[in-house]
């Protein structure tokens, strides 16, 4: 069983936000209006966080950090869900069951990465954009929680194909929208358990780290530190 993971090279990210746009379009993530930003209710399964470190060699420079769901191996959001609407799948993806979610937002509160989003209203798209919704991904109703799924619907298709041909999924066969569009190739995606894969090699790099490591959540999204 593969263990899907991601490595994001912070030295390569230039903050263009193409990943955010690709993700929104791939996963039918609701459009955020300026008022949503003002009310702090914008959606971005993959948000590019902009910040200026106050200390250290990077002080004073604007830095970027794309943040998807970390797909923890020990996910704090999964244990607290009262209805098992968020689960750790066998292939390591933390999935959401939108039809079961009661919208209590316990999982959003126990996610130390603030990577989960709640539908405050019924999501809406302009008429001309409705044509562009991805038919493989359900549109989430108001009152439920959602987040990055590592483009799980793509995995579904790829593994069906592999099963039909009675073989394993090949390296590079399954990738995620954000990784595909990144112009600087800052995002790598693949099987962390396959030593041949790019992600496995990069995750072992001495620049590699995970966010809030000391919490023991074991994220499957690794970052590569910038060297100045």
């Amino acid at each position: 069983m593969p263990k899907w993971g991601m490595v994001i090279d912070l030295a390569r990210c230039n903050g263009c936000s193409a990943c955010t746009v690709a993700c929104k379009s791939e996963n039918n993530v609701p459009i955020s209006e300026p008022v949503d930003v003002e009310e702090r209710r914008f959606f971005a399964w993959l948000e590019v966080i902009e910040h200026e470190p106050e200390h250290g060699s990077g002080a004073g420079r604007t830095r970027f950090m794309p943040r998807p769901c970390m797909h923890c191996d020990n996910p704090p959001c999964v244990v607290v869900c009262p209805v098992s609407a968020t689960k750790l799948d066998r292939d390591g993806i933390v999935s959401q069951i939108y039809d079961r979610c009661i919208g209590c937002r316990y999982c959003t509160n126990n996610c130390p990465y603030t990577a989960k989003y709640f539908n405050w209203r019924t999501p809406e798209w302009p008429e001309e954009m409705k044509q562009g919704l991805n038919p493989d991904v359900s549109v989430r109703p108001k009152g439920t929680v959602e987040k990055c799924t590592f483009c799980h619907h793509r995995l579904q298709r790829v593994s069906d194909q592999a099963n039909a041909e009675d073989r394993e999924i090949r390296e590079g066969e399954f990738s995620v929208a954000c990784a595909e569009v990144c112009p600087t190739q800052a995002i790598a995606f693949g099987d962390l358990d396959n030593p041949e894969s790019t992600v496995a090699r990069l995750a072992k790099s001495n620049r590699s780290f995970t966010e809030l490591e000391d919490l023991g959540t074991e994220p499957k999204v690794h970052y590569l530190r910038e060297d100045y």
């Binding site: 009262p82 209805v83 098992s84 919208g103």
Partner: peptide, 22 residues
Amino acid sequence: DLGRPDRAMNVLLHGHFRSPLL
């Protein structure tokens, strides 16, 4: 506080005993 009060019965139908809410 629930986003989907109509699904409150899921707590009984799909109860997850590791959750302090249960």
